[in-house]
Amino acid sequence: MNTEYAYSVFMSIRHGLLALLSQGSRHGYQLRAEFEASTGATWPLNIGQVYTTLARMERDGLVAPGEQDEQGRIVYSITPDGATEVGRWFATPITQTERPRDELAIKLAMAVTTQDVDVAGVVQAQRTATMRTLQELTRSKRGLDSPLDTAQTLILDSKIFQAEAELRWLDHCEAVLSRRSLQHPQEKQ
């Protein structure tokens, strides 16, 4: 996992927990359960991550610990600064540079410039794999029909659109490569 990606995951968890706290005070286990429920368990959290994140947000003045409940769990509340931060998060679009580097694009670029690599084969193998992913995602989505599943459906849709975009890009790669090989038959495909 590269640092950029780790950072974006870290920030998503932080803001996600803060958004839940903006709905009312909660303790760590509640936050974990609700985070997983609203993202369809796409990003499972361990309780350690939740408490580490809460401790850092407390240090940054975004949340404040309250009293312990009968089971000794500390209930956290959002501070005014935390509420501002949630508002800013929702209002700010995510830019492409905050997302992880695209390993596949790098692989394809390397395949094109490396001797004796069957680029068309790389494209085809990836297309089949991504299509299987898309089939599995669609199957998961078929299982969710209740309106209560809206959040989970939208998360799955996000992954479906990503898989779709990748497949379109692979088709594009293939079309470009085959045009090249027609125009410059001496160049390797």
Binding site: L134, Q135, I160, E164
Partner: peptide
């Protein structure tokens, strides 16, 4: 691709 995703086989 989105609609092909509904298929058993593509």
């Amino acid at each position: 691709p989105r609609y092909a995703g509904w298929a058993d086989r593509v």
